[in-house]
């Protein structure tokens, strides 16, 4: 096998629009934390341009098909699109079957669309650990719109709210309707709802149910800020965003991804939200929150890694054994480990 390309060559290449360099840089970032640090350092100054769009929703609602149709509508406006499609890693084998691409054909031969599949590996919350880095690389690679499809999400997969400018939650009729929608934690993170498969019976009911919840609650914006504080992302910026956010009326759109129906409206809503983010100051608030979240994640990972390196060997198993014998409780054991870390 030939020698792998030097990191700097990949960085220079991807910044110049070399797609193979971009693809290889994404693999490096996924495989190797030290390389991720080098590559992100090399491109970070060139990021911050793209509109980062998250698409999430229950399994099978049509996210991939919709992302593909949306990419096509952006292309019709002359905008370039990078797509990151995340699917779960099997906890048993560590392998993954990444199938989103099956629904994203029709863009080959178009250098303005770049689609990358990504397995979650050890990531949680519906994304991979490398997802945020890969988004930066797509941004630096010059794509105007970067769309991330999360794994088919339930209530806990809300990590996307921490990495995207705009979150589209995809629903479909007949998923248990109202009850399902109310339960899902996804509701609180939506900037736009797409009720996909609107060609099917019951789409109108799903739209009505969502609209009613948005009205009666009227609280989506409030809930959102509470949730974000819950994520330990409380920063000054968050407060000003809450004010602004109340002025974004969350649209509920019907789409038929397979035929392209309603996708123009979805694109227009996304463009409106992008303009609104800019105009209201919410964009920089969200960016501050996003980068703060990234910082926090990286520090946590580094601290954990350092702990693994520096802890006296056997301390962890001793403490676990002590807990099993009920000689020490979990909180005290944790305090014991942290003490060794700082000392």
């Amino acid at each position: 096998m030939p020698k792998p390309a030097p990191t700097q060559q990949l960085i220079d290449g991807l910044l110049k629009g070399d797609r193979l360099a971009l693809a290889r840089a994404i693999s490096r970032v996924e495989d190797d934390a030290a390389e991720a640090a080098r590559i992100v350092r090399g491109v970070f100054a060139q990021t911050g341009r793209a509109h980062l769009i998250g698409v999430t929703g229950a399994p099978g609602t049509g996210k991939s098909t919709l992302v593909s149709a949306l990419a096509e509508r952006y292309r019709a406006q002359g905008l370039t699109v990078g797509v990151l499609a995340v699917d779960p890693t099997s906890p048993f084998s560590g392998g993954a079957l990444l199938g989103d691409r099956v629904r994203m054909t029709g863009h080959s031969g178009d250098a303005g669309v770049f689609i990358r599949s990504m397995a979650t590996r050890r990531g949680t919350g519906g994304l991979a650990r490398a997802s945020a880095d890969a988004m930066l690389l797509l941004d630096a690679g010059g794509f105007d719109r970067v769309i991330v499809e999360t794994v088919g999400a339930g209530q806990a997969e809300i990590e996307i709210a921490s990495v995207a400018d705009t979150v589209v939650v995809v629903e479909a009729p007949g998923l248990g309707d109202e009850v399902q929608a109310i339960k899902a934690g996804l509701l609180e993170i939506a900037d736009i709802f797409a009720v996909n498969k609107a060609d099917r019976k019951g789409a109108g009911r799903t739209v009505a149910a969502l609209e009613m919840m948005l009205e009666t609650g009227g609280a989506a914006a409030q809930v959102r800020s509470i949730f974000h504080h819950g994520q330990r992302m409380a920063m000054e910026a968050a407060a000003s965003e809450t004010d602004a956010e109340e002025r974004w009326p969350i649209p509920v759109l019907e789409t038929v991804a397979v035929s392209g129906g309603g996708v123009d409206q979805l694109r227009d809503a996304l463009e409106r939200h992008w303009a609104w983010l800019e105009g209201s100051g919410a964009r920089s608030a969200r960016e501050g929150r996003r980068l703060g979240h990234m910082l926090q994640t990286l520090v946590q990972a580094e601290v954990l890694a350092r702990m693994e390196r520096t802890l006296p060997p056997g301390l962890r198993s001793d403490l676990v054994e002590g807990m099993m014998r009920r000689q020490i409780d979990p909180y005290s054991a944790a305090a014991e480990m942290v003490k060794k870390l700082s000392g």
Binding site: T89, S90, S93, G94, G95, L97, L98, R101
Partner: peptide, 13 residues
């Protein structure tokens, strides 16, 4: 089979 062997498999259809 390749997924179960630990590979990341992209299926295009």
């Amino acid at each position: 089979a390749l997924r179960d062997a630990g590979f990341e498999v992209i299926y295009t259809g």
